[in-house]
Amino acid sequence: MTDLSLHIPDTGPASDEAGLRDYWQLLKPRLMSLSVFTALVGLVIAPGGVHPFLGATSILWIALGAGASGALNMWFDADIDRVMKRTRSRPIPSGRVEPSDALALGLFLSVLSVVMLGLTANWVAAFWLAFTIFFYTVIYSMWLKRTTSWNTVIGGLAGAFPPMIGWAAATGSTPLDAWLLVALIFMWTPPHFWALALFVRMDYHVARIPMLTVTHGRDATRRQAFLYAVGLAVVSLATALSGIGGPLTLAVAVVLNGVFLKGAWDMWRRTDAEADADGHAAEKALFKWSLVYLFVHFAVFVVEAALHPYGGW
């Protein structure tokens, strides 16, 4: 028998061959974890019960659909990723994964996740998962991201759908309460991302991506972040007063939005020079609070749902 290893050099392309971790990275696990969490909340708080095994597998397919979107996004954005520092080490620009492999993986997982969610839960949920993948890949990645500075706002809609898909998986319908969850994440995304964009000076200009900080300036970004924080507070209070809310949600929402608005206000009412002087303390504080905000807000929906038998609105 021939020992192939004798003919393979110790360095070179061999060490660049993709491992499982590279394919895992293609699925954007951080974004997947957000989708899993919000979809799980949507599924749990939806009225009626769902078999635990069917619920868990539905969440798995939603996560897989989110991962498929990530792979398709990385396939299409490989040229951008190659020129930006933050993304240069991703599997495709670093040469570890072939673009065609990423495309094949993305398409395969898209079909698999949608079909399996349809068979596991229902076709309403499957439709919205397919729409989300389409929206993130075609509308956001291929179109908006490279053409308009509102890419963050409209593209954020793709990340907002998972709780509604979870709800649809449990009930087969998408009532107003489920759309309120979508609206909450939709309004949350811009100030969350713009706070990050203000303190991590990303090199979007190198890749010619029209981010708001580049096209309209950093002061305009600060103002827009505050305006969206106001909109977020309105939606948040609407959820607290809706069927998924209750007294506890209202109390928590008041605190969460109070701190968020104060943070967004502080970020707006200062200049870049002031931000540079204190190491972007306000921007970092708002970004961190936005993470706490989303987690606590969605967690309290679950607690409220558990408390509903004992009273609610």
Partner: peptide, 30 residues
Amino acid sequence: RDHELHTRRKGRNFGLLAVLLAFIVLIFGL
């Protein structure tokens, strides 16, 4: 002695095996 490439491929193949087995278990459970 296995070359690093073989080790890596072995890891990838076993990973794929685990995923396929998990998929079978999942379909059976469903």
